[in-house]
């Protein structure tokens, strides 16, 4: 018998625990040549702000050992652009469409959340309080308990569906931030966003990125992400969605063992645009190989002793 890969994040039923991370999968159509996005557990679409944003100047990316830095800076068409131009093209997907909601002010988060709330085929939002690449807002909200709590509380008041908060790893205690947003009614947390880093060109003695610093992603951050998922899952009752450098099914299983209910695949989509179906298949193979009939029994299954 085939094992069950189905998991639940609050009210969301995921056919499998594999979703794509915001900013790494576009809106879905970009990958339709490689596989059917409806096979995913969910799609976190690109960070969406109140107004259209051009993002940061080029260069925005630097390759690093086993990873990359980006400083895209939330380039997007704005919430109205998403609703009018993009949503009609993706709302037919048979998967959970989750909009990553970003902003510079609490008012902007509220505006975007309210508008997304009216979309029938978007059952959840991911509150991005952890973008390291914007001057105002973004990570500033996610690096202290009072501000993380304040923005979560404000959005919770206007948004009735599943509210996920994406946490920053650039903090002393991610567990405390997770507890703060849980206390304000968050339904789940995504752990982690990118780690703040930088790259220098020794020859020119200049920074590689136009913004000097950027967000590090890829396998380079996986051990940090795993540790933070484990610490967070031990500190809160709401589900944790794990991400950070997942390239293979084994990586995904490790996050689930550490306490994640589901995972997001990000940078790996750039290396292999068809990686997600392979990860889903690999998870199923793992369950069969270990005689496990339901993936839920694997969550927080880390055997410390």
């Amino acid at each position: 018998m085939k094992p069950s890969l189905e998991v639940k994040i609050h009210n969301l039923v995921l056919k499998n625990p594999v979703m794509t991370a915001s900013g790494t999968f576009g809106y879905g159509p970009e990958f339709e040549d490689f596989f059917d996005p409806s096979t995913l557990g969910g799609i976190f679409v690109k960070g969406t702000t109140g107004k259209l944003r051009q993002g940061n100047p080029y260069p925005r990316m630097a390759e690093t050992p086993m990873g990359m830095l980006n400083a895209v800076g939330l380039q997007n068409k704005g919430v109205d652009g998403f609703i009018n131009d993009i949503y009609p093209r993706i709302k037919h997907y048979h998967t959970n469409l989750i909009v990553n909601v970003s902003g510079s002010t609490i008012e902007e988060y509220i505006e975007v959340a309210e508008k997304i709330n009216s979309l029938d085929h978007v059952p959840a939002i991911e509150l991005n309080i952890s973008c390291p690449n914007v001057k105002e807002g973004g990570m500033a909200f996610g690096t202290s308990c009072p501000s993380a709590a304040a923005v979560t509380r404000a959005v919770r008041e206007v948004y009735q569906k599943t509210l996920i908060v994406k946490l920053s790893p650039n903090v002393t205690s991610i567990a405390e931030i997770a507890q703060a947003v849980e206390g304000e009614g968050a339904d789940a947390v995504s752990v982690i966003n990118t780690l703040l880093g930088m790259a220098i060109n020794a020859e020119t003695r200049r920074p590689v990125l136009s913004t000097v610093t950027g967000g590090l992603s890829g396998p380079a951050i996986k051990p940090v992400a795993l540790r933070m998922v484990w610490q967070t899952a031990n500190a809160i009752k709401i589900p944790v969605i794990g991400l950070g450098g997942i390239m293979t099914a084994s990586d995904a299983i490790e996050f689930i063992l550490a306490g994640a209910t589901a995972v997001q695949v990000g940078t790996a989509n750039f290396i292999d645009p068809a990686v997600c179906p392979k990860i889903i298949e690999g998870i199923e193979d793992y369950l069969i190989r270990h005689g496990i009939d339901n993936i839920k029994s694997l969550i927080s299954g880390l055997n410390i002793n």
Partner: peptide, 13 residues
């Protein structure tokens, strides 16, 4: 400088 090549990462603008 490019990462994905398919219009998803928005790095090569």
């Amino acid at each position: 400088t490019m990462a994905c090549g398919v219009g998803a990462c928005l790095c090569c603008v």
